[in-house]
């Protein structure tokens, strides 16, 4: 499959596109079943995902939390499901949960829209991240530049290299 494409359609939006060699029902499952989500959302070395609560009920809340088992640091994301169309679309809010890691990504939740489109067994997934304001987007991007952030550039490099 072709690697992910990233674009910036507006000044508070980032769009990520990627296709997968699998039918949409499997991709949907991998995006919504916590046991499966854990298998691809915990790729950072040294980090586990102790909390992975997911729902596909509109109005329902989800909660994801990561943990660095070496130094007990935690952070996560929480939010509410705004729209769910089986095998087609998930829209949810997202708020950064700083845990004991610190930092902030702005007060207002961002809106995440994930769409799934299957053609001949290939599923195209488009993820749009829309920040509440430009200021929030800037906050999201500059978080982690703060002193409280333990995860270093070196680790980032390792993640990127891996």
């Amino acid at each position: 499959m072709k690697p992910a494409e990233v674009s910036t359609p507006s000044d508070r939006e980032v769009l990520v596109k990627r296709s997968f060699d699998a039918p949409v029902d499997l991709v949907w499952q991998a995006y919504t079943d916590p046991a499966l989500m854990r298998r691809w959302l915990t790729a950072m070395p040294g980090w586990s995902m102790p909390v992975c609560e997911m729902t596909t009920d509109v109005g329902g809340k989800y909660r994801w939390r990561w943990r660095n088992d070496e130094n007990d640091q935690e952070f996560g994301f929480t939010g509410e499901m705004l729209e769910v169309a089986l095998h087609s679309k998930i829209v949810h809010t997202q708020i950064f949960d700083p845990g004991n890691l610190g930092g902030s990504m702005g007060g207002e939740p961002s809106i995440i829209t994930v769409t799934f489109n299957e053609t001949d067994g290939i599923t195209a997934v488009a993820t749009s991240i829309k920040f509440a304001s430009q200021a929030d987007r800037d906050a999201a991007i500059s978080t982690g530049m703060t002193d409280g952030m333990e995860m270093s550039y070196k680790q980032l490099d390792e993640v990127l290299a891996g």
Binding site: Y31, W64, F75, F77, I112, I141, S142, T143
Partner: peptide
Amino acid sequence: MQPFGCILALVDMKRD
């Protein structure tokens, strides 16, 4: 889903 906003946040960028 944007589970790695935290890593994204590490990426230094002139915000403007």
